[in-house]
């Protein structure tokens, strides 16, 4: 079975700094990582492969340096890596991104076999939209399973898959037909440490690199800025609140005395909290 995992190279967001004067992003030297949510998708794909056989291809769209993340995925144990890179993709929003990735997935199907499952992470840590997975599914007509916590059953003869999906207030158990697009929930597995063998292989592996034309994209108006209906009107730092926090004096106070002072402040600001608490404790 052929499984494709879409992943994204993202800046390690904890380390992003904003220039205090110009409010622009200081990106120099910011390390990049594989979007952490995508690792759960990659591990699940490799787990299925190990169980029933087949191949895992990882696909990313990004600048040439996104190759680093693909090599990392090969180190973890992916079998093949495809990099989709072209200046025409620059400035893509989620609609344009899903077009480019869906085109590349079609090409991957022609070159290496049609995937039965396409995985993505739940969302990325930089864009945080959770929109690209559903976008790909819609464009390719794949059955869409989002926020999947567990793959319960995979029956290749019947072309059937059963999953548990995290829904509002509960878990949906869904059955559908392959091929599917699955966005994997976080925390559902643990990414393996790559073997020494796969590390060697990854270091010298050839990354399949496609530009728009090589991926079979002829309509460039659907790519990048041109293909993006959303427009970033402005980027700005939030305005500080006029009033900063009222500081409770702490000088020389023991924690007990300080706690009493804090509680007195809270109750004087929010008398209803005190009456709520009294009611709550009376009901205990």
């Amino acid at each position: 079975m052929h499984i494709v995992v879409c992943l994204k190279q993202v800046p390690d967001s904890a380390q992003i700094r904003v220039h205090p004067v110009t409010n622009t992003i200081m990106r120099q030297g910011v390390p990049t990582i594989i979007n952490p949510y995508d690792l759960f998708a990659l591990e699940e794909a490799m787990r299925l492969r190990d169980l029933i056989g087949g191949e895992v291809t990882v696909l990313t769209m990004g600048p040439p340096m996104a190759e680093d993340s693909l090599r990392k995925a090969l180190t973890f144990g992916a079998d093949r890596a495809v990099l989709l890179t072209d200046r025409f993709f620059a400035g893509s929003d989620t609609l344009a991104t899903s077009f480019a990735l869906a085109s590349a997935l079609t090409k991957i199907g022609q070159e290496f076999g049609v995937p039965s499952i396409v995985f993505t992470g739940k969302q990325t840590i930089d864009g945080d939209t959770a929109q690209v997975g559903p976008g790909i599914a819609k464009r390719l007509g794949l059955n869409q399973l989002t926020y999947v916590a567990r793959i319960v059953e995979l029956d290749r003869d019947a072309n059937k898959i059963i999953v548990e999906r995290r829904a509002e207030g509960g878990v949906q158990v869904l059955e559908t037909r392959l091929p599917v697009l699955i966005t994997m929930l976080e925390g559902v597995n643990e990414i393996r440490r790559g073997s020494l063998e796969s590390a060697y292989r990854a270091a010298s592996a050839k990354i399949v690199t496609w530009n728009a034309a090589a991926a079979g994209i002829t309509d460039l108006t659907k790519c990048g800025l041109k293909g993006s209906p959303t427009i970033v009107k402005k980027v700005f730092a939030p305005t500080p609140r006029a009033e900063k926090a009222h500081q409770v004096p702490t000088d020389g106070l023991a924690p007990e005395a300080l706690a009493d002072a804090v509680i007195a402040e809270i109750f004087s600001r929010q008398p209803s909290v005190e009456s709520d608490l009294v009611r709550f404790s009376a009901g205990q």
Binding site: T24, I25, G91, T94, D126, I231, V232, V235, F236
Partner: peptide, 18 residues
């Protein structure tokens, strides 16, 4: 949503397009 990293410059050629 526009891809965050690519949305970086506020002076982006797209900004203000109408």
């Amino acid at each position: 949503m526009t891809d965050a990293p690519k949305a970086a410059p506020a002076t982006n050629s797209r900004a203000g397009t109408k």
